[in-house]
């Protein structure tokens, strides 16, 4: 009896999902609704986070606003309304797929697997997968981590890679999964793990914000390349064309370098920290030849 009720409810909900699966281009949706919605993160510094006044700001937000300008021009709608919607790694896909947000402005790694579900515009940052550890432990290369306990954030491309390397090179590392970056960093801080494997830019942010940054060191050894991109819905060539063109124009006109300097080389809100991360050679190559590829070899 109960089982029948349950099966019925499940069938209904799946049927409902399929029913609303109507295809509509993002540009048409924006024109009809008179507004565009940007998804932003709350603590992905300096890409997309909330400043002292709880307003979403950051490097990726600035790029998204440039894209919005291009959309305004394309649709000839100078008064287009811009909405902001907070998202988390867990909600970004469903909210993009169901049309709640139109662009995801954060620090999401572009991978071939993810492209089966959504698509990315031109890469806006090239991070590398590295690890942070205490200076006193003197860990510099992956080989130094042999047989040690390390941590990474569950569900990230970084933990995936750590697992792959562990099997491939028979390192025998114990890999812990933390719920989020802050907790993973805390595990290294409290000695539960010796190293935290993550995108170097995120690690730099945690070290800079720690009470005693001199305690930590980020490995010179890079384990992989992580190209970040702004996400948009798949199979929407008209919208992707507008977005890509806006990004490429920005890269070619030198506007990107100015925005990059604003967020990575100068004091940023709310506490006026300076990230002090000059543009990498890989990113300079992307600026010269913009690409939306997920293939790490393209960035080497």
């Amino acid at each position: 009896m109960k089982i029948r009720y349950f099966a019925c409810a499940l069938g209904l909900s799946i049927g409902f999902c399929a029913a609303v699966q109507a295809q509509q281009g993002t540009l048409d949706k924006i024109r009809a609704g008179g507004s565009i919605t940007l998804g932003h993160r709350d603590a992905s510094i300096p890409f997309s986070y909330l400043d002292g006044e709880q307003k979403p700001v950051g490097y990726a937000m600035d790029l998204c606003l440039k894209i919005v300008d291009a959309v305004k021009e394309e649709l000839k709608m100078p008064n287009l309304k811009v909405n902001f919607q907070p998202i988390t790694p867990a909600t970004r896909i469903p909210l993009l797929a169901n049309g709640t947000i139109d662009l995801e402005c954060g620090a999401t790694t572009n991978t071939a697997d993810r492209q089966k579900q959504i698509t990315f515009t031109v890469t806006h940052y090239v991070a590398a997968n590295r690890f942070v550890s205490k200076k006193a432990d003197n860990l510099n290369t992956l080989e130094d981590l042999k047989g040690k306990t390390i941590v990474s954030t569950s569900g990230t491309t970084n933990v995936k890679q750590a697992n792959e390397l562990n099997t491939e090179r028979k390192l025998g590392m114990r890999i812990l999964n933390a719920k989020d970056h802050a907790e993973a960093f805390l595990m290294v801080d409290t000695g539960r793990a010796l190293a935290f494997v993550m995108d170097d830019i995120q690690l730099a942010g945690f070290v800079a914000n720690h009470a005693n940054p001199a305690l930590f060191t980020i490995s010179p050894d890079a384990l992989s390349v992580e190209p970040f991109g702004i996400m948009l819905r798949k199979d929407d060539p008209a919208f992707k064309k507008v977005v890509d063109a806006a990004m490429v124009n920005l890269y070619k006109s030198g506007g990107l370098t100015a925005i990059y300097d604003k967020w990575f080389m100068k004091p940023i809100p709310p506490r006026n920290i300076v990230m002090n991360i000059p543009m990498s050679d890989a990113m300079k190559r992307v600026v010269a030849n913009p690409t939306d590829s997920s293939d790490p070899n393209v960035y080497k």
């Binding site: 999902c17 790694p89 867990a90 896909i93 469903p94 697997d113 993810r114 089966k116 579900q117 959504i118 941590v151 569950s154 569900g155 990230t156 933990v159 995936k160 812990l176 999964n177 933390a178 719920k179 907790e183 595990m187």
Partner: peptide, 23 residues
């Protein structure tokens, strides 16, 4: 999941992050 145990919810979240097949 909050203390790093890969139980069912954690594995589900990991799966959705790797594959992006949330539903």
């Amino acid at each position: 999941m909050a203390v790093g145990l890969m139980e069912l919810t954690a594995q589900t979240r990991a799966m959705q992050e790797f594959s992006f097949q949330v539903f």
